[in-house]
């Protein structure tokens, strides 16, 4: 159906033109918000909140970006966001792959099935409900606004997601590999690090990207657990739009800086994203 070329007959040509038209309409719809944000960020601050907004800047300016850096510690918040996301991802991948490998290899046993269901249920818990108990736990130990704790909390909260994804990846690795390693005298730990882990590296990358973005994009946990020292970019972004100040210009600048790397990343890593999404769902 979908492979014919132009010009076989008139009906096909009409169909192809409709396809192009629809594709372009959707394309414009989906990139408009992002482009609008991008162009707004290069307007002078006053034009961003003009009552007669234009799509393209009337005059180009980097005033918004300068303001972001002058009025807030945005560099530090970016560093915090990155460290929290990176460290939690490393913890998740290391511990998560161990756990999911073991579960994938024992999936016939009742106990392992229980763990699997438990993980699935934990994955469904809405963060907005458990973030307050987490906050009081962290507060109790005096770790409020402390970056290492944010890393650890992210690792815990994202762990079920990592397990769920990795289990389906490990299921695709033939068990013959383990058994061959065992015959050669390797225990489960050795077999895992020497034989299995190298095979699943692409899957680790997919999982890693998703886990990183889960933490990078988190707003609520950082909102409750941090105030100044460990504050992340989303929290800072939300503060541009409080009831006291409506600092839209710098907000657009910071939002672009925050999202642009992610969009570029998703362009280049689409292959990994697709396999990750499918693993997280279909085979689960």
């Amino acid at each position: 159906m979908f492979n014919e070329k132009f010009g076989r007959n008139r009906r096909d040509n009409v169909w192809i033109i409709i396809m192009y038209a629809l594709a372009v309409v959707f394309l414009l719809g989906f990139i408009f918000p992002y482009l609008y944000m991008l162009f707004s960020s290069f307007k002078p601050s006053a034009d961003v909140i003009s009552v007669h907004p234009t799509f393209f800047p009337k005059s180009w300016s980097i005033e918004n970006y300068l303001k972001v850096f002058q009025t807030s510690d945005i560099g530090k918040f970016f560093a915090n966001s990155f460290i929290a996301a990176a460290v939690s991802t490393i913890i998740c991948l290391l511990l998560g792959s161990l756990a999911s490998y073991a579960i994938s290899r024992t999936s016939l046993s009742k106990f392992s099935n229980f763990l699997l269901i438990l993980v699935l249920c934990l994955k469904m818990i809405p963060v907005s409900s458990i973030v307050v108990p987490i906050y009081s736990l962290v507060q109790q130990f005096g770790f409020y606004d402390y970056l290492p704790v944010l890393c650890i909390v992210y690792a815990g909260v994202n762990m079920p997601f990592v397990l769920w994804m990795m289990i389906s990846f490990f299921k695709d690795v033939p068990r013959d590999l383990d058994e061959a390693a065992a015959v050669d005298g390797a225990g489960p730990f050795t077999a895992f690090f020497k034989v299995i882990l190298p095979v699943v590296t692409p899957s680790l990358i997919s999982t890693g990207i998703f886990t990183f973005l889960l933490s990078w994009n988190d707003f609520l946990i950082a909102l409750l657990l941090t105030s100044s020292e460990a504050k992340t970019v989303p929290v800072a972004l939300s503060e541009f739009l409080t009831s006291y100040s409506l600092d839209l210009g710098p907000m657009t600048g910071a939002a672009v800086l925050f999202s642009f790397p992610v969009i570029i990343l998703s362009f280049f890593l689409q292959r990994y994203l697709v396999s990750g999404m499918l693993a997280g769902s279909v085979k689960g």
Binding site: P33, Y34, L213, N217, F219, V262, F267, Q270
Partner: peptide
């Protein structure tokens, strides 16, 4: 076109909210 339509895919929900609020 597919690549560009996918661009909101990984954006933070908070940013999506802010963009549309704006």
């Amino acid at each position: 076109i597919r690549t560009f339509i996918l661009s909101p895919l990984m954006i933070a929900p908070l940013v999506a909210g802010l963009v549309w609020k704006f």
